Computed example of a mutant assay.
Amino acid sequence: MLNGRDPRIDFFRGLALIFIFWDHVPHNPLGQITLRNIGFSDAAEVFVFLAGYAAVLAYGNVLQRDGYWIASLKILRRAWVLYVVHIFLLAMLMGIVFFANSHVETRDLVEEMGLTHFVTHPQQALTDELLLRFKPNLMDPLPLYIVLLGGLPLVLPLLLRQTWAVVAVSLSVYLLAPWMGWNLRAIADGVWYFNPVTWQLLFVLGGAAAIHARQPRPAERRALLRQPLFVAAAGYSLLAAIITLAWRWPEVHDALMPAWLSERLYPISKTDLSPVRLVHFLALAYVTAKLLPHAGWTRHWLAQQSCRMGRYSLEVFCLGVLLAPLADMLNALAGDALAMQLFSALAGVVLMGALATWLEFNKRLDSRLQARRSLPTSSLNR
């Protein structure tokens, strides 16, 4: 039986949501400290991997306890909720962007956000929205999660019983997809920016990690620097950080990067989840898991705030999507002053944390009310 909730998962989900928000605000100075600046992968990989981890952990329990059909029903019901949220979120985002665009005269925020299709072809855009083909900037992760979660009933039973066989099939599909041109249709570029056919591997690997984490295994007695896999993963992460930092100075990058390596490394496709991105994320995740094997540090007050946001990742993600264009508008109106950029970035995180706190308060309140209703009448009258 899969059981227990690892607070480290919630912490890194919350941190990924903060990074996604900061990365989505143009010219945000705090965006310089996010994951994408120290390696080939970014917060999107964290989000998808942990989504797979959490989904298999939650619905694997349901499948083992209540059976396949109940688990499938709950998965599809959740996917439907995500779909409805996506529709309403897109409508709210368009309203905010049009409002922001009316106040910013130096830039066309509608075009920058990828909303021109709605302006020029509103009827077709509404149809494309319902079919998940119209995805303005900031909206790509949610449709990807909807598709991946909707496909989970097809693989969950096998994933629980034959984990490595499912991973092998998923890996084969991942390798074939770019070569065969497998992707879903969308407007603008013609295909999904996050190709579900390739990103499904990261979702499956997250589920496999959830299963593996619940299996008993002997403790590693050797020091970390004597473990070859840890050394290799740490070395790759360090090399990726050096190369990524060198992008800021093209002369330094060209001097350090051999031509033969540059030809094989670039371009690093995010759409098809380039192997160097995938390997970088897995290496970074492995190093992090080894360096933080226990969850005691998540009891720190700051860590608790991130954990809380991770527990309500859908609501916090949606708020971050809506806050990003508002922060961009404030920065533009202030002439991209550093003080305003820092204020908007930090204020957005505070609001995201406040939403998570409010949701947690309401959940506890509901739990107390349900507990009171379940008490016998005689107990309430004492």
Rank of each mutant, 00 (worst) to 15 (best):
T116E: 03
W297F: 01
L369I: 10
S237D: 12
V167A: 02
L375R: 15
A240I: 11
L202A: 03
Y68K: 14
A213V: 12
H27N: 15
Q341C: 09
L57V: 07
V287I: 04
D66E: 12
H86E: 09
R133I: 14
R161G: 01
R226K: 12
R77H: 04
L158K: 00
G206E: 05
L355I: 09
V119D: 02
L89S: 02
W179Y: 15
Y236M: 15
M1F: 11
E45K: 13
A339G: 12
A79Y: 00
F361N: 11
K74D: 09
N195E: 07
L115S: 03
N183A: 10
V173P: 08
L175S: 01
H86K: 05
N101L: 07
A43D: 08
K270Q: 01
G235Q: 05
R308K: 10
A283V: 08
Y59D: 04
G150L: 10
D254Q: 12
V316W: 05
F194P: 00
L93N: 01
A303I: 06
T34D: 02
Y286H: 11
C318S: 15
T271M: 06
V81G: 04
V56Q: 06
F203Y: 09
D328I: 00
I33H: 07
N37Q: 10
Q162A: 13
L365P: 12
A345D: 10
A234L: 15
M1R: 07
L82S: 06
L351C: 15
R299T: 14
L160G: 04
L184P: 06
N101V: 03
L291Q: 03
H300K: 10
A177V: 07
F361Y: 11
L302R: 06
Q305A: 06
Q305W: 07
S102W: 11
N101G: 09
V173A: 14
W247M: 13
L76Y: 06
A44Q: 08
S313D: 08
